[in-house]
C-alpha cells in the first residue's frame, strides 16, 4: 500500500505503477460524468464530433453534484460519488476511445471495465461513499460546465482539484479488482460463518 500524488494529464506509464490498495490523490483537471454524459460522449465519438474537452489523461468522476450559482460563479456544495455499476455498460468504450486514466466512484465496477483498464491503462479509484464534503473541499473551482441541458446532476462539470482523495485503487491496470477479490473471499468465508451459526448450506 503506497500513497501516490498525480497531476493531470496522467500518462499511461504513471498509471501502470499503481496497484490495488494503493492510495491516490489527484490534482489538476477532473470532470463529472454519469449515465447521460457517458452516453452522449460515446455518441459524439461515433459521429466523429469532437468533445468540449480533450479527456486524455484526465479523471472521470461518477458524481451528480449539488452546485450553487452566485452571479456568474458556480460553487460545488456537495460532490459525493454515485454508484459506479450503472456506468459499466459504457465504461470500456469510454476508456478505449478517450484514454481517461482514472475513473472515480463508489461500489466498484465489473469485468468489462477491469479488462479495458488492463488493455488501455486506467485505474478505478474508490472514493468513500457519502463523504461529500471531503470531495467538495478538494475542488478549487468549477472551470466550466458542459451539456447542462442534461440537468445539474447529469451535466459534465469540469473541475480544478487539489489533492482530491483519498482514492483507494480498487481496480488497477494489471487485471486486479479489489471488490471482486473481497466478494470472492466473502463467498469463501460463508461456509465458516454458517458453521459458526450452526447452519447447513
Amino acid at each position: 500500500m503506497t500513497d501516490y500524488r498525480f497531476r493531470t494529464p496522467i500518462s499511461e506509464e504513471e498509471i501502470r505503477k499503481l496497484r490495488v490498495n494503493d492510495v491516490l490523490y489527484i490534482s489538476g483537471t477532473m470532470f463529472t460524468a454519469r449515465d447521460q454524459a457517458h452516453r452522449r460522449a460515446l455518441e459524439y465519438f461515433k459521429q466523429g464530433k469532437s468533445l468540449p474537452l480533450n479527456l486524455e489523461g484526465l479523471a472521470a468522476f461518477h458524481c451528480g453534484p449539488i452546485v450553487k450559482k452566485t452571479k456568474d460563479m458556480w460553487t460545488i456544495i456537495a460532490a459525493g460519488p454515485t454508484t459506479s455499476t450503472r456506468m459499466e455498460i459504457f465504461e470500456d468504450e469510454f476508456i478505449k476511445n478517450f484514454k481517461v486514466r482514472v475513473i472515480i466512484g463508489k461500489g466498484g465496477m465489473g469485468r468489462r471495465t477491469t479488462e479495458a483498464m488492463a488493455s488501455y491503462g486506467a485505474v478505478y479509484g474508490a472514493f468513500t461513499g457519502g463523504a461529500a464534503i471531503l470531495a467538495a473541499k478538494a475542488v478549487r473551482n468549477v472551470k466550466s460546465v458542459e451539456w447542462l441541458d442534461l440537468g445539474m446532476p447529469e451535466a459534465m462539470w469540469i473541475l480544478e482539484v487539489e489533492e482530491f482523495g483519498p482514492l483507494t485503487i480498487a481496480i488497477d491496470s494489471h487485471g486486479n479488482n479489489l471488490f471482486m477479490n473481497v466478494q470472492r473471499k466473502a463467498e469463501e468465508n460463508k461456509k465458516r460463518i454458517y458453521q459458526k451459526l450452526g447452519l447447513s448450506q
Partner: peptide, 13 residues
C-alpha cells in the same frame, strides 16, 4: 458472524 465476511468499510475489505 456478518463481520466475518470481510466485506469491510465501503466493501474494500
Amino acid at each position: 458472524a456478518v463481520n466475518m465476511t470481510g466485506i469491510g468499510p465501503m466493501g474494500l475489505g
